[in-house]
C-alpha cells in the first residue's frame, strides 16, 4: 500500500484539505470534535481543569439556555435546568469520547434535561415578570406591544404543547423550530429514525386538532404573517 507523507506546512493549500473543508464540514452542531473543538480545551475539560470548564461554560451557556427554553417553553425553572445540564456535563466529561463536537454533546444533555423536566410534569406557573429575565435588550425594531403579543401567542402555543407527550413535543420542536434534520433529532433523543418521524407526525396531528378547536388562536396564528406557501 503506498504511503502518504505527513501533512506538510502547505497542507492547507492541498485539494484534500479544500475537499475536507468544503464537503466534509457538516453543520456546527454535528461537527467532528477534531475540526471544531480545541483539543487542549477538550483535554482540560476531561481533566477537570477549572479554566477549561469555565471556557466550555462561557462558550455554550447561551445555546443551552436557548435549546432548553425552546423545548420547555417559558419556565421559571430555566436556571435550574441549565445548572443541571452543566453539572451533568462537568461530571460526565470522563465519558466524552470526542466523536461528536462538544456542542452536540452538551445539546444532547440539555435535551435529556428538558425531557426529564417535561416528563416530571412539574410545571410552575410563569409570573409575567419572568417571561424575559435576560438583561440583554430584545430587538429594538419590534414595538413593545408586538413583542408582548408575540410572547403571549408563543405562551399559548406552549400551553397546547404541554398537552402533547414530551417525546413527541421535543422531536417536533427540534425538527421544526430548531431545524435539526430527522437524523440529528434521532441522535439527540436517542431514538430510531422511524420513531422520530412518527413522533413528529403525531405531534403535528395533535397540535393541529387543538389549534382547530380554538378559533381565536387559529386566527392569531394566521394573522401573525404566516402565508400558506413558503
Amino acid at each position: 500500500m503506498p504511503r502518504r507523507g505527513s501533512p506538510g506546512p502547505d497542507f492547507n493549500q492541498t485539494a484534500l484539505w479544500r475537499y475536507h473543508r468544503d464537503v466534509e464540514d457538516p453543520r456546527g452542531a454535528m461537527a467532528p470534535a477534531a475540526t471544531r473543538d480545541d483539543p487542549v480545551l477538550v483535554a482540560g475539560c476531561r481533566a477537570g481543569e477549572a479554566t477549561s470548564l469555565e471556557q466550555f461554560f462561557v462558550t455554550h451557556v447561551h445555546y443551552v439556555e436557548r435549546v432548553i427554553s425552546r423545548l420547555t417553553g417559558p419556565t421559571p425553572d430555566l436556571e435550574d435546568l441549565v445548572q443541571t445540564t452543566f453539572i451533568q456535563a462537568f461530571q460526565s466529561f470522563g465519558r466524552y469520547r470526542g466523536e461528536a463536537s462538544l456542542k452536540t454533546w452538551v445539546t444532547r444533555i440539555a435535551v435529556h434535561t428538558a425531557l426529564h423536566q417535561l416528563r416530571s410534569g412539574v410545571r410552575r406557573a410563569v409570573p409575567l415578570e419572568l417571561v424575559s429575565d435576560a438583561d440583554e435588550p430584545s430587538d429594538p425594531t419590534d414595538a413593545p406591544d408586538q413583542q408582548a403579543a408575540s410572547r403571549q401567542l408563543a405562551r399559548r402555543l406552549h400551553a397546547l404543547l404541554d398537552r402533547i407527550a414530551p417525546k413527541k413535543r421535543v422531536a417536533f420542536l427540534l425538527y421544526t423550530v430548531e431545524e435539526y434534520s430527522i437524523e440529528e433529532v434521532a441522535a439527540l433523543t436517542e431514538a430510531s429514525k422511524a420513531a422520530t418521524k412518527s413522533r413528529i407526525w403525531f405531534a403535528r396531528r395533535e397540535l393541529m386538532a387543538m389549534v382547530r378547536g380554538q378559533t381565536d388562536l387559529r386566527q392569531l396564528i394566521e394573522a401573525s404573517g404566516a402565508q400558506p406557501w413558503r
Binding site: E79, Q83, F86, R151, L157, I221, A226
Partner: peptide, 29 residues
C-alpha cells in the same frame, strides 16, 4: 392546515427564547 403549521412554527421560532440574567448565569457557573 399548512398555514397553521407554518404559522405556529414561525411564532415559536420568532418568540424570544428565555435567557438567564448575568447574575443567574454567574450563579449557575
Amino acid at each position: 392546515e399548512h398555514a397553521i403549521v407554518l404559522g405556529a412554527t414561525r411564532v415559536l421560532r420568532s418568540a424570544e427564547p428565555g435567557a438567564l440574567s448575568s447574575a443567574a448565569r454567574e450563579r449557575v457557573r
